[in-house]
């Protein structure tokens, strides 16, 4: 089971790295989400894969039975998913804003933050794409 997990994590990571190499930001974001999933699976594997009994305390008991799965990795993953969701949502918002305000989602077409070299040396970035943002 562990080796199956390792292979799955490896494939996900490879796919994520491939997406990171893309030229446009939405793909990079998808890469981030995939890498996040890979890391979550890693945490699950780190907590030892064994029992698949849900870690729920039955109504008439006061503690988990020994057969239950390790609840800690699940709690960690839940937290990580929520945080990853927040980060991805914010990054997506920023990409949408970038499309609307800068007219592009390609990092190489963005020169705005280049400060004191930009105004004279470089042409205004990609005005042709601006119209679909209006």
């Amino acid at each position: 089971m562990e080796s199956l997990f390792a292979i799955a994590i490896g494939i996900l990571t490879a796919a994520a790295v491939y997406m990171f190499l893309a030229r446009d930001l939405p793909r990079v974001l998808i890469g981030f989400i995939m890498l996040g999933t890979a890391v979550n699976m890693l945490i699950l594997a780190a907590g030892r894969i064994g029992s698949i009994v849900p870690a729920l305390v039955a109504g008439n008991e006061s503690a988990l039975t020994a057969a239950a799965a390790n609840p800690l990795p699940q709690a960690l993953i839940l937290t990580a998913i929520v945080i990853g969701f927040g980060l991805a949502a914010f990054a997506l918002m920023l990409i949408v804003k970038s499309q609307r305000i800068l007219g592009t989602v390609m990092p190489e077409e963005m020169q705005e933050a280049e400060g004191d070299v930009a105004p004279q040396a470089l042409p205004a970035p990609a005005p042709a794409r601006r119209k679909d943002a209006a």
Binding site: G86, A89, M93, V96
Partner: peptide, 10 residues
């Protein structure tokens, strides 16, 4: 609040 804020901004 957070989820609505994110979506309404999008």
């Amino acid at each position: 609040g957070t989820a609505s804020a994110i979506f309404l901004a999008l």
